[in-house]
Simulated scan of single mutants.
Amino acid sequence: MASSTPKHHVSSMRKRLSTPYARQLSASFKSPVMKSNKETPKQTSILTLEEMQEQISLLEERNQELDMEIELLQSQGFRIEELQWHIDKLHEYNEIKDAAQCVLGQLASLDGATVKELHERYGLTMDD
């Protein structure tokens, strides 16, 4: 048995589709992720020899500045070998902090409070 749509339902639907909101909803959807043809990146122009030499000069200057910064840091006792250790410790700290925030979130949920209230209750700053 084939079902048919009642006529009064169809007419009321047409009335709803004629509202300004329905027209907006039925308009074509434009995803913010997809770029329109107008937003395509511009073609890069070919650099002149002078422009390339200027860029090379700027990059060489920046390289010298960075070398001087490295020398300064090394003269202050910093060692490149220690860098990975510090990075690892920062990762470990962030993992512990994330776990603590999860626990606070669960406690807040069980207690019917907000995480901010628990921070205040336990004397924690929002930076902790």
Rank of each mutant, 00 (worst) to 15 (best):
M1F: 12
A2F: 15
T5G: 05
P6N: 15
P6G: 11
H9T: 13
V10H: 07
S11A: 14
R14T: 06
K15Y: 07
L17S: 04
L17K: 04
A22Q: 00
A22I: 01
A22Y: 01
R23A: 11
R23P: 01
Q24L: 15
Q24I: 07
L25D: 01
L25V: 01
S26T: 12
K30T: 05
S31H: 08
S31K: 04
P32V: 00
P32Y: 02
V33Y: 06
M34E: 09
K35H: 11
K35E: 11
S36P: 00
N37S: 09
P41N: 08
K42Q: 11
T44N: 15
S45L: 14
I46R: 07
L47H: 10
L47V: 08
T48S: 15
E50F: 07
E50T: 05
E51Y: 04
E51M: 03
E54L: 10
Q55E: 10
I56M: 13
I56E: 09
I56A: 13
L59Q: 03
L59G: 00
E61N: 06
E61W: 05
R62G: 01
R62E: 14
L66P: 00
D67W: 09
M68D: 12
E69V: 14
E71W: 05
L73V: 00
G77K: 10
F78E: 08
F78W: 15
R79S: 10
R79L: 12
E82Q: 10
E82H: 12
L83D: 04
L83A: 07
L83V: 10
L83Q: 07
K89A: 04
K89L: 09
H91E: 12
E92V: 01
E92G: 03
Y93V: 05
E95N: 07
I96A: 09
D98Y: 13
D98F: 13
A100D: 01
A100M: 09
Q101H: 12
C102E: 13
G105W: 03
Q106D: 06
L107C: 04
G112T: 00
G112W: 07
A113Q: 10
E117G: 03
E117L: 12
L118I: 02
E120R: 10
Y122C: 00
G123A: 04
G123N: 05
L124K: 03
T125P: 02
T125G: 12
T125E: 06
T125W: 11
D127W: 15
